[in-house]
Amino acid sequence: MTATEAPADRRFERFTPATRALHWATAACILTCAVTGFILYVGPITALVGRRVLVRQVHVTAGLLIPVPLILAYLGPWRRAIRREFRRLGRWSAADKRWLRTRGQEATAEVGKYNAGQKANAAFVAGMIPLMLVSGSIMHWFHYFPVRYRTGATFVHDWTALATWAVVSGHILFALNDPGSLRGMVTGKVSRAWAAIHHPRWAQEQAGVVEEAESPLR
């Protein structure tokens, strides 16, 4: 995690293998749910694809698997590193709010490991997962619930799914538009130059310049 490990290395480690495994395993489950959900939801596609029972089984299985990587992330020795990422994603500085309000035009020098857009994405996904799990479970095991909850759960599941499509599409588009960022999540490493441009505070921190949390800039 510190730059002293390899001073000659021109790259920073951005994501540990455990973090990347968590990201990609969760992404695989969510994408499977998104594709199968789309098939189940759009009538003409349902008819075109057929095999509705199989598609539904895949959808439900992938959905129930979503929390498994998260649980594993909290069970292993990599727990501390993961918790730290969550903490960094959850905390917003005044600069983050300004950055988001100005769509990344201002306060760019104060962006830390995650910018406010990435933090917003993470918070949405963190809320989306339990929402979809609970509403989906009510839809699947509807016998155990009052009948009107089934309609309510369908309502929540539909609208949250629509929002998830929008947010995840945005997440993927941002990643494709910034190969340096995507490379970070694929290989775990980013170039110092990339870090200095996109996440300057984190780059300074990695280089050992900023040791303290408090800064007169804020």
Binding site: R87, R88, R91, K113, A123, A126, R201
Partner: peptide, 21 residues
Amino acid sequence: MASSDDAGTPIGRRILLGMLG
């Protein structure tokens, strides 16, 4: 190791709880 991101308001938690509500 302290970092620039550790302080600040727990907005992430608020978004999550708001969505659950």
